[in-house]
Design a protein around this nucleic acid. Structure first.
Lengths: 239, 239
DNA sequence: GAAATACATATTGTCTACAATAAAAATCTG
DNA sequence: CAGATTTTTATTGTAGACAATATGTATTTC
């Protein structure tokens, strides 16, 4: 029956985590301890414990006597992200294909179902969190406590970057999101088959797709409108 | 003059960290909040914050209503460590060679000096911490917030494994420690020269040396003493 | 009027006391 | 005497009150 009613403290932790991932709390902004603790109906000491843990995992940065700041994203963030992501994602996915248990694969499938649902509903936050959860489960499958810390750190900013650049209007991006979801199905198939090499390759391909999406924002295509002409200049094209 | 007297809380954090790294606090053992807080002259709430942070970084594991346990080392730890270490170490070292600043190189040299000092003095704990610090500085040089979490996690158990298997009596190991120190000098030279490829290769070689040391303990050479004989059995060798 | 200093206020950091939970001990029952 | 149950005790979890620090504002002085 799972009456396992998570404690207020745990709810607070998970909710803060989600609000940071979905950028409801913007990168670089500061959290007011009193405000937050009252919101979740707990006192400041347990909240401060939560903030420390979030700091340890890279969600926030603690400044002495200045409180907790949502981990900022600097100009270096994207560059460092591009460098680290393919290595970690490929490594983790390879290990996942080697070690995944049946129960974990079931959970991954459930997660993927919810992920597709979120895409259909056009729910940006739910989609971003679903994607994060999908890759977290793959991380659990890898079952390597030394690789997971970096994976978790990557997923934080990958999720936030995804939220920043999410745009439901652009049809091209909608197609890419469908493609990403299809790749998730392939992840499941390859992990279930235990094909480590193919899974690692897919991880790189999945990453390249995400990278392309991000870069299309960072380096947008030039607008197709010609420059105006200086006064007095002759027209040379078709009248 | 640096009167910057670190707060009791910071001292507590760093000291706990060291005691875990040097295995003064054994893997799997539990910490008593009252005992520890009184030892450092602080109250329990700030100590609990520290424990949360240590948990976030992988030094301890928190169990609900059961307190903080020094991160245990299971039979899987060594295996997972072997899998993750070469990738992370090589990647981080490569980036360090590309990004190191002059000031960081100065710090690395100072650290190496202290490291050799510790080896000369036969101080196991100081040597282990010096090695940890050396590789932490290389991590800082890499300047990649996504790779550092895994590096830090690796260094925790690398340091602890080093303490477990440290044995000042075996002369063979003393030679290997000298070799490791020499490799540290090479790290400095290659990073200073900005030779990323060579630095990455050296990282793998350095890792292989460490791995060999560890394996010589895990898979010890058989003792060169023949089995005894069952009663009544004829001798067949030399009289 | 501008700069510097002192004050006021808001927020973080810490402590003590209390509540809740879990392990251990002791008692009771079959 | 073994097992289960209750009571006790020890330890963790939380709350509220107080102390310390930093920022913003007002006042003073040059």
């Amino acid at each position: 029956m799972e009456t396992e009613t998570r404690s207020k403290k745990q709810i607070c932790f998970e909710d803060l985590r989600q609000k940071i991932l979905t950028e409801e709390f913007q990168p670089g902004s500061y959290l007011d301890e009193i405000e937050v603790s009252e919101f979740y109906g707990i006192s400041r000491p347990p909240l401060r414990e939560i903030l420390r843990q979030l700091a340890g995992e890279g969600y926030v940065v603690l400044h002495e006597n200045r409180g907790a700041q949502v981990a900022p994203m600097t100009h270096k963030t994207l560059r460092n992200f591009f460098v680290a992501a393919p290595m970690i994602y490929a490594g983790v996915t390879r290990l996942a294909a080697e070690h995944a248990t049946t129960a974990q694969i079931v959970r991954l499938k459930e997660c993927q179902w919810a992920f597709r649902q979120a895409i259909r509903n056009g729910d940006a936050a739910e989609r971003a969190l679903g994607n994060e959860r999908f890759h977290s489960i793959i991380g659990e499958m890898a079952d390597n406590e030394f690789l997971l810390p970096s994976l978790r750190r990557l997923l934080i900013d990958h999720t936030r970057i995804g939220m920043t650049f999410y745009n439901p209007r652009k049809t091209q991006l909608a197609e890419q999101r469908e493609l990403a979801a299809d790749q998730h199905d392939q992840f499941i198939a390859l992990i279930e088959a235990g094909d480590a090499d193919a899974a690692a390759d897919l991880a790189v391909a999945h990453w390249e797709l995400s990278r392309a999406q991000i870069e299309s924002f960072v380096t947008p295509e030039g607008m197709q409108i010609p420059l105006g002409r200086a006064p007095g200049e002759e027209r040379r094209g078709a009248s």
